[in-house]
Structures are given as structure tokens and as C-alpha cells.
Design a protein around this nucleic acid. Structure first.
Lengths: 229, 229
DNA sequence: TTAATAAGTGTTCCAATTACACTTTTCTTT
DNA sequence: AAAGAAAAGTGTAATTGGAACACTTATTAA
């Protein structure tokens, strides 16, 4: 790099860069968020999203993955960037620019020890308390974006176990869109998606009759898949 | 701020923060982008988006507005954040994190002197050359996002003069979605939007018969407006 | 054996979208 | 003054996709 090139960058300020993660789970027919009841400064005692700073040599996407893994122990999680929040005073401590990411996790699979260590809790969406800084906006934006994504791409299944019943799948989408759906119409739609396939197994934990278990087949979807719900 | 709070921030690195702007215009039935043929380092001689660094005391949104104003002289422009690009090596000179914003401008109204001074040119979308760094991805993402926004909100009019004919409006949407539309169906749809109102004036520049001029009424839209195209 | 519980299954109706072609107005040219 | 050119403007029928709707089946527990 030449001297003039170096000057091109160095005359400009640098900023702390953070990520904040909106971690969605699904349980008892409701979406939940994994939130911290902060037992550390700043804003000790208040509720917040799980967040952290981007480190040297780490991409912002990688930072988001690291932050989710730190709290849940989970890697290979479905995550999407929501938006970057760059208001000067958004963090009252010092200037920090933050990118929000949402994550969809199977609520049965997280590392309980890590979550406890961070003093984190799953909170059902309707009961989410006021969060610090601009985290309320982040949650609102993430929810909206996730709903849109879930309506055009088969990403909702990331909130379910590998194998799921159609009843589970329907209650999931009812929770995502906060509206009840017609069972027959819903099943008709799913039946038209050949990438949601029967495993042949039957789940008898929820009904005497037993319900067929399905699984999402990503290869089949990549080939010719359409999704709209 | 206490010492421990200060430490909370200061152990973490800081980064250059930039914005890059995808500036859309509309002319001759085609979308265009305002691009720089760089006559300065780095990447002198190559094509790029208009960009710049976020400065101290300036929000990221404000930086984006400033950058667009610097090039076009235009303020109060419709702009939306697209996405933040945070790969470590995205700028080969030094690490820079960049938020992309798209802007919709009336291509008749920009400041020609400023544009010339920056060696910038309007390039029709199908003829956009390869751009530096990850700017090609930024353009692709911005176009997709803009198309989505334009399909659910009446933002396309930002690319037209205050007053426009229905033929202009239709060719605009045909350019945005890269598909031809049926004239009668299109006009039927627009007629159902009472916030797109006749001005009473007639434009005779494009036809012997003359075409009615319309205008977007934002107040009417706010009240009860629905938009879907 | 029967009572309880969730799983599973088709058809009709309605609304929204799509397809489709000619007339009108005005100016220019001859 | 008549004819031709060019874009503006206008309505209906057909199709499609989405919405509404209720009973039967399988199984286990009482």
C-alpha cells in the first residue's frame, strides 16, 4: 500500500463494531426469544439481546455465529443479518455500531450450562420485556424480517426437530404469523411440496392414533423447490 | 462512565466504517445507476459505487445521506439501508466495514457539475460494468431489495418527476420488475389507488392527444392507503 | 365395549388476476 | 380540408388460486 493510499483510510475515524443476536425458538405453540438478564455492566440488571464485539480478523457474519455459539453451544445455525444500527447515541456508554442478526434454533438442543452461565432465559414473544438501548427495535425488525423470510422460504423448520408432525409444523407457522390456519388447506399446501417428505415413522407421544413424521429434504428443495405460505 | 465500563469497550478493536450508495434513476424506459469511474486511488481507473467513510458524530444513515448529497446535490432523497458487508478482506487496502444504501432519485434533478467533478456517469442497468470490491453484490442485493419494496410500497414514484403520466408510471414498473404489463390491468390497479390523483394538467410532449398528469399524494396514502403491484 | 383424543381427508365457493382489441384525440402531412 | 400517424384511453369474460367448511379414522385408556 502506498503512502497516499494509507492516508486515504487513516484520516477517518474508527468505531467499535458489535453484533446483537435475536435468537428465536419455538415451544408450546409460541415463539420465544433467548434473552439475557444482565448480571454484568453496562446496564446490569436489565434485559438485553445476546451481543458482542466484532474482533480483529473476524468477519461480521463470523462474529454473529460466534456470539450465538457462545450462548447456546450451537453451530451451523440458520442466521440472517437483519439491519445495522448506527445512531450516534444508541449505546449511552460509548459509540458502538451494531449489526443485528436473527437466528432460528431448535429449542430442544441448546447447551443449558452455557445459557445458565450467561443468566439467559427463553421468554415467550408476547411476554418479552423492555430491552436496553435499541434492542426493542432490533427485535421488531428481526421479527418482521423473519416472518417475511418464513413466508417465501422453507426456513421455519429450523425451529423444529429434524423430524416433525404436520400438526407441529402448522402450530409453528401459526405462531410465526400470529394467525390460525385451516388444517386441510395447510396440509394440502404442504403435500404439494415434495421436499417435505414422510420419514415413515410415527410419533405416538402426542396422540393415541399417532402422527406421521416428516423431514425437510434440502437437496430436493434446491432442485425444483417452490415455497410460499 | 466507570473505569470498568470503559474497559468493557476499550479491549475491543475499532474499524473503519463506510457507506456505499446504489443510486437508482429512470430514463428511456430503463433503470440506471450513478457510478464512479474512479479518477483517484484506491482502484483508480475502475468503476465503483459512490461511497465514503462514516465520520465522528455522524450516524450511519446520515453518512449515507451526505454521500448521496455530495455526488448529486440532492437532499430529502428516498433511501433505505440494504445490508452491511463485513468480510475481513472485502477492501484489499485496509479493513473497512461498509453499509450499502440504495437511493431513488429523479434523474432530471441532479447537480451536473458535482457529478462531472466526481467523474460519475449514469449507466443503464443492463450495461453496468464490473465494479470493485464487493460492489457487484451490493448492486444485486440492492436491486432485489428495491424490487421488493417497490412491490409493496408506493416508492417507485421517487424515480419520476412530481407529475407523471400513467404510461411513464407503467414503463417505470416494467423496468423495475423487468416484465411487461397489460395496459388495461395496470390502469385499473392504479385507478383503485385514490392517493395517485389526477392533477388536471395534460402533458403533450409525448403524444398528439396528450396524457393526463398524475401525482402521488402522501397524506392520502398515509390515511388508508394500500399498495401492491 | 365405549369414550376420548388427535390425525387425517375433498369439495364448493368466491375473489383476484389474467387475457384480450378497439376507439378516441390531436397534430402533421399532403 | 382530408387522411394518416401515434399514443391515450377504455370493459368484459375466463381462469386461477385461495378460503371456507365437517366428518371419519385409528388407537389407547377407562
Amino acid at each position: 500500500m502506498t503512502a497516499s493510499e494509507k492516508a486515504y483510510y487513516s484520516v477517518h475515524p474508527k468505531f467499535h463494531m458489535a453484533v446483537d443476536c435475536i435468537i428465536f425458538g419455538f415451544e408450546d405453540g409460541e415463539l420465544s426469544l433467548l434473552l439475557l438478564k444482565r448480571n454484568f455492566e453496562p446496564a446490569k440488571g436489565q434485559w438485553s439481546l445476546m451481543g458482542g464485539f466484532v474482533e480483529e480478523g473476524e468477519s461480521v457474519d463470523d462474529a454473529a455465529r460466534r456470539i450465538v455459539a457462545q450462548l447456546t453451544g450451537l453451530t451451523d445455525i440458520y442466521m440472517r443479518q437483519v439491519k445495522t444500527y448506527g445512531n450516534v447515541d444508541r449505546d449511552p456508554g460509548e459509540r458502538v455500531i451494531s449489526s443485528a442478526y436473527y437466528a432460528l434454533v431448535d429449542i430442544k438442543k441448546y447447551d443449558h450450562t452455557l445459557v445458565q452461565a450467561h443468566n439467559a432465559f427463553w421468554v415467550k414473544l408476547p411476554e418479552v420485556p423492555h430491552l436496553i438501548f435499541d434492542h426493542d427495535s432490533m427485535v421488531a425488525d428481526a421479527l418482521r424480517f423473519m416472518q417475511y423470510q418464513a413466508s417465501i422460504k422453507p426456513v421455519g423448520m429450523n425451529l423444529l426437530p429434524e423430524e416433525f408432525t404436520l400438526t407441529q409444523l402448522q402450530t409453528l407457522y401459526e405462531a410465526i404469523f400470529r394467525e390460525s390456519m385451516d388444517k386441510r388447506n395447510f396440509r394440502k399446501k404442504i403435500a404439494s411440496m415434495d421436499y417435505i417428505e414422510k420419514t415413515g415413522k410415527i410419533d405416538k407421544t402426542l396422540s393415541r392414533k399417532g402422527a406421521a413424521l416428516y423431514r425437510f429434504n434440502p437437496e430436493r428443495f434446491k432442485e425444483n423447490g417452490q415455497f410460499k405460505i
